Amino acid sequence: MAAGGDHGSPDSYRSPLASRYASPEMCFVFSDRYKFRTWRQLWLWLAEAEQTLGLPITDEQIQEMKSNLENIDFKMAAEEEKRLRHDVMAHVHTFGHCCPKAAGIIHLGATSCYVGDNTDLIILRNALDLLLPKLARVISRLADFAKERASLPTLGFTHFQPAQLTTVGKRCCLWIQDLCMDLQNLKRVRDDLRFRGVKGTTGTQASFLQLFEGDDHKVEQLDKMVTEKAGFKRAFIITGQTYTRKVDIEVLSVLASLGASVHKICTDIRLLANLKEMEEPFEKQQIGSSAMPYKRNPMRSERCCSLARHLMTLVMDPLQTASVQWFERTLDDSANRRICLAEAFLTADTILNTLQNISEGLVVYPKVIERRIRQELPFMATENIIMAMVKAGGSRQDCHEKIRVLSQQAASVVKQEGGDNDLIERIQVDAYFSPIHSQLDHLLDPSSFTGRASQQVQRFLEEEVYPLLKPYESVMKVKAELCL
């Protein structure tokens, strides 16, 4: 049975990233139509530049190519590739079939990587351009969430054990800070992308030097003109047959890092959902379990974690691919890159769409948070109580021993009897502590235990987050809708 299948058929496997999760716009960027249309555009740009620099290419040939950029006979191309065992030459023939007058000058002087690699770089750039505003929107939604809850005390956790208090907004800023680093890295790697350009079979530009009869300047002009037509500021000066596969490492490393950030955020949300302090959106008709109707599973956060793990592992592909590119190139890269580049971007696209949807509907339960604080705060307040007693004339050592005994009794009630923490009640009825009984409410005010959390939130948002989001103001209103 021949390899390949009808990918629109229910009898043929289709990647869930495309069929179930990723956005239509990201799927289109990695589609065959987008790819092969870009090949034709690159052939047109090459012909236009070659004509401008004096090669015998007519206006009629150029116009014929322009008129057929979208006229792609995919069936013919597939048949040609089956016959020739070469995808680029299959599309040269297919393009030439609908451009008979231009057929002889299509791909003039070029090698397969002229269309293959340059198209990949265009796709990487455009895919990054799709991700950047999506990530900015996630940051914006979380920034709104953090600002609104900047002063809401909550129990902090280290080692997932109760620690000092923080605020809900401050905790959210930990998430935002990681995503801001990801946004900066995505922008950097996007701006650092260079075009492969017009380089020939081993990167020496020998074929173009021959076409222009040894004119170095025209060869350099050709490279520059096509690079500018493709919208790049610069091209690699040095290439082998391909652009260095280190570029793929750079791009997928940034995406993998984004995956790590999203995994951490969504894990926190899942843990908070278990504590009943916070939940992701839950639709009115949504079913959490087929057997347990009360369940409210954090399905979206779980999906993000599941896909983020996949995204983090994909960076190993370009690392290994770059390491086995012998001399000017081997074909070890080809099949692998067809999979890992598309999957990385479709996965990143999915987790950003999902995280935006989550961040637009996060639900906080202040009463649950308050109750958990009441359970733990008495123990945390013991040092403040000791200091207040010393100020009232008591002995630190005597007070410490009193607190120690009462704390152990209260802990026994919590752990052995399943009761509430009654340390404060014990202190309130103990005559030894009568000098500070009137101060206990103040000493137990949760806001006095959150330090500068709310001020940190305000400063972080104003100095770091809002300036970073400013270039994306025009796209901030787009909502994230999930079908599944």
Rank of each mutant, 00 (worst) to 15 (best):
V363A: 05
Q241K: 02
T58P: 06
Y466D: 13
V414E: 00
I237H: 09
M389I: 10
T158D: 00
A392E: 15
G54R: 07
H159L: 01
C304K: 03
L307M: 14
L183V: 13
V363I: 13
G393D: 08
L355V: 14
D11R: 09
A291Y: 00
D268G: 08
M292K: 00
E462K: 06
L211T: 14
I72V: 09
E279A: 07
L42E: 02
F208N: 05
L222T: 03
C99M: 03
P366W: 06
Y472R: 06
E401R: 11
R459E: 10
K264P: 04
K402Q: 07
Q41H: 14
V251R: 04
N421I: 08
F449S: 04
I238G: 07
D178E: 14
C113K: 00
I436H: 04
P133E: 09
S301W: 01
E70T: 14
R196S: 11
H97Q: 12
L46W: 00
C173R: 01
N336T: 15
S301A: 08
V29I: 13
A22V: 11
T58H: 13
L165S: 01
A102N: 05
N274E: 08
I386V: 13
V390E: 07
Y472L: 15
K229Q: 03
F236Y: 13
I436F: 04
R149Y: 08
I358S: 10
T350C: 11
F236L: 11
V88W: 00
T58E: 11
T94C: 15
A335S: 15
T94E: 14
G288C: 04
P435E: 10
Q161M: 00
M89W: 01
L121M: 08
P100H: 07
L53Y: 03
P435I: 06
S334Q: 03
Y365N: 14
E220S: 10
G203E: 02
Y13C: 14
G200E: 01
H310K: 11
G156E: 00
D422V: 00
L482T: 14
A344I: 06
D430M: 13
D191T: 12
A322N: 06
C399H: 07
K35R: 14
E383G: 06
F460L: 06
V189C: 15
K35S: 05
V262A: 14
A260E: 07
F145Y: 07
S67M: 14
L377P: 03
L152E: 08
A480L: 15
A77C: 10
T382R: 05
N353P: 08
L352F: 15
K233G: 10
A110D: 08
H91G: 09
K170V: 00
Q456K: 01
S290M: 02
V465M: 05
D87K: 00
L331A: 03
V115P: 07
A453D: 03
K284W: 13
